[in-house]
Structure formats: C-alpha cells, structure tokens
Design a protein around this nucleic acid. Structure first.
Length: 228
DNA sequence: GCCCAGGTGGGTA
DNA sequence: TACCCACATGGG
C-alpha cells in the first residue's frame, strides 16, 4: 500500500465534512412510527414511506393498539404507496403479534431489552431481517447497533475493505471494532453512508472523480460529482 | 419505458 | 453456500 488505509473513523469524518449532519430520527420521534418506517422502507425509497406513514397517521392507526385493531387487507391498503404492501402488511402484523404475545403490547418493555436480546427477538419475527432489526434497535431504541445496508456494502467493497466472509456480521464488525460504541455516532454514520451511496457515480464512470472517500480527488467539490 | 429504492424469505442447485 | 426470484409502487 502506498497510501495509508482509510479507517472507519476517517471515512466518517470525510462524509460528515461533505454532507453535514443528516438528522435521521434523532430522538423525539415516536418509537412505533420509527419501527413501522423501518419495515416500510425495505427496498423502497423513503419518500414513498412518508406517504404511507401519513396515511396511517391520517387514519389514526399509528400506534400498536390502533394498528392491531386493523385487518390486514385494510392495513395493506393504507400502506400501498410504499410498495410490496401486502408483504409489508403481513410483516407489521407479525411484529404486532410478537409484541402482544410476549410483551402484552408494551413497546417500551420490548425496547428496554439489552441490545442482544432485542435483536434476537426482532429477528424471530418473519420479515424482520438483520438490517431492519438493527435499524429498529438503533433508531427506535437508541441501542448501539450499527446498520449495514446495500450502500454500505458497496462503499466498503469499492474501498477495498471488504471482509473475507462477506456476511452481514462481518461488515458490521468492520465498523463496530473501529468505532466507540456510541449510538449517536452509529445513527449519523449510517445516514451519511446512505447519503453518499445515493450519489454514486454513473455505472460507466471509469474512475472516481470528486469522491470524498478517494484520496487525490477534490472531495470538497460539488456533492453532485461522481461518487464511489 | 426502464431502473431502482434506507430488504427479506423461499426455492433451487 | 450461492444465486435467483417475488414482492409492487412511484420518481427520475
């Protein structure tokens, strides 16, 4: 290596310098709304999720109690704008079933679990996978759970930092082993990776130009420039 | 008209 | 284990 490796901390510093704080669910948000959003955003743009959340709010069912009283087809219809709505209605129903079966509908009790137990409980719900479980643990419960998504994997891969085992856990360890266990940091970092990932270069770009994560590029240039 | 979005689970080899 | 596919709307 003729250049020092980019560390997780340095990547964060550069992204924050270029994009600024992202402010994803920075507290003060209703935990249930965050959980519903985490499920609705699966393979879906956030703008679509916002419409579905607005519909749920408008119908007055954005709480565990009220949503539980809804039939699955009715719920599906409300969240239609978020795409794969029948699948997501089933997943929200499965979450509520778990919440009532094991926590008597007490969301605060679920979210008070230690991060390991919370994650395990969430992963047992059909339709909640590792990314959604970590997103809920981090953004709804404020636990130190680092979220790995498709953007993060791609950015890590293209920086040449891919773990040997390309599993979810190994990507996550790449960050958690290099960073202090700080939920606010994890929150901001994931949001920054998403922001950067959305601005990726065109598929055919031969080389990165203006990307904040590549040494030698004028990363202070327009954030609309080609990215990793 | 095509591609993709803050994934997950089921099926097949 | 490693792919492939369904799920489905709406913005660029």
């Amino acid at each position: 290596m003729d250049r020092p490796a980019l560390t997780a901390g340095k990547v964060y510093d550069r992204l924050l310098a270029v994009y600024g704080p992202q402010g994803w669910w920075p507290g003060g948000h209703d935990a249930f709304e965050v959980i519903v959003g985490a499920v609705l955003t699966q393979n879906t743009a956030w703008t679509h999720v916002e419409r579905a959340l607005a519909a749920l709010r408008g119908a007055g069912v954005l709480s565990p109690e009220r949503m539980s009283g809804l039939g699955e087809p009715e719920l599906a219809e409300l969240i239609r704008p978020s795409g794969t709505f029948r699948v997501k209605a089933r997943r929200l129903r499965a979450f509520l079933d778990m919440l009532y079966a094991h926590f008597d509908g007490d969301l605060a009790a679920l979210l008070a679990l230690p991060v390991g137990a919370l994650r395990k409980t969430l992963l047992a719900v059909p339709g909640i996978g590792p990314e959604t479980a970590d997103a809920i643990a981090l953004y709804a419960a404020g636990k130190t759970a680092f979220v790995i998504d498709a953007y993060t994997r791609r950015i890590v891969d293209r920086l040449g930092l891919a773990p040997i085992e390309r599993s979810y856990g190994d990507y996550r360890a790449l960050f958690t082993s290099a960073l202090p266990a700080d939920a606010a940091l994890y929150n901001e970092y994931h949001a920054l990776l998403v922001e950067h990932g959305k601005r990726r270069c065109t598929r055919r770009a031969p080389r990165c130009c203006g990307c904040p994560l590549v040494d030698g590029c004028a990363y202070a240039r327009s954030s609309g420039a080609a990215m990793l």
